[in-house]
Write a protein that binds this DNA or RNA. Structure first.
Lengths: 167, 167
DNA sequence: TCATAGTGTTATGGTGTATAACTGTTAGAG
DNA sequence: CTCTAACAGTTATACACCATAACACTATGA
């Protein structure tokens, strides 16, 4: 079978791979914004999940609690839209929080529910915030204050890409 | 595409939502790096997927092809590690690429496979790169060149958080 | 009143990620 | 040389997340 005339019998020796794992031996990949974003987002979410494991809150749950706490009585549909979550996917999310008695739904009219924190939810969120502060400090340890603000600004601009066509 | 429900105007029916839209609609959320990262990463991946739909490559598949192209013969395990993918999850991924005859596995010894591009794979990757260039240009349109480099640098530092305990 | 829009819900499919367990292979210690 | 431990790939499973369609019920307003 006609092997490529590439002399390299070693597909990738340890050194080469070592370089691949750390440095920019990912080929052009290391210059791609989307790729860098995925890696960073994954690493940070992992740290978040581990850090908040003792209050058993995942990022999505924490964000919902934070939003409800900041906006008591907010409607499910509004909250879902604000968080960029489909309303359909929001149902089991808020359902789980309510099952744990952290939030409750209060009917506003016949078709909409306002969401509120329970005392238990507020207490848990307080603990969660303390844990999140540690997480946040660890994550931003390598960033200056101005650098952090610039990062958030850039990320928000990137999130507005939205080239979605109409269906 | 969920952006369509996002209202930029102010329906002054819900006071809580009202407050939400101006002074940091999301409460403290807008200052959290992880949250901003998730939103940006989601938006960019959506754009990526739509842009590369005509070559039917998802981000993970594109990254694998790019890596193999840059490192012909790289082992599955090495590639998976370099991309931060579990080796178990890498199997159906590379399996699909091989089924489409874009890559092929060449046994190096009895237990390991080197991965290579097929001519068909190289041709598709070339097309994919052209599409990706358009995507990349659109994504980074609002960024200066220096800003982009700084962003990548910051993201790579963030990806190195890794407070993970031994696995 | 009655068509229309809004709200929440169920159901379903696809994708990504993590973990455990298993097979076969290689390498190394004794 | 043998035997054990580590390695590479694979299978199976479980869960979280994201997207879409279809539905029931309610509110709105022409």
């Amino acid at each position: 079978m006609p092997r490529t005339t590439r002399k390299t019998d070693r597909p990738d020796d340890a050194a080469s791979l070592e370089a691949a794992t750390n440095a920019g031996a990912l080929g052009p990949l290391h210059a791609y914004v989307g790729y860098a974003l995925r890696r960073a987002q994954l690493a940070i979410f992992q740290d978040f999940i581990r850090t908040l494991a003792e209050v058993d809150l995942r990022p999505a749950q924490f964000s919902v609690l934070t939003l409800i706490d900041a906006h008591p009585g907010i409607l499910q549909s509004r909250a879902a839209a604000a968080l960029g979550i489909q309303k359909a996917n929001f149902v089991p999310l808020i359902g789980e929080l309510e099952r744990r008695e952290l939030t409750r739904r209060v009917p506003v009219d016949g078709r909409s529910n306002g969401m509120h924190m329970t005392p238990k939810g507020r207490a848990l969120l307080k603990r969660a915030r303390a844990l999140h502060d540690r997480h946040h400090a660890r994550v931003t340890a390598s960033l200056g204050d101005a650098e952090l603000r610039r990062l958030i600004d850039v990320l928000e601009r990137l999130a507005a890409v939205d080239g979605a066509p109409a269906h």
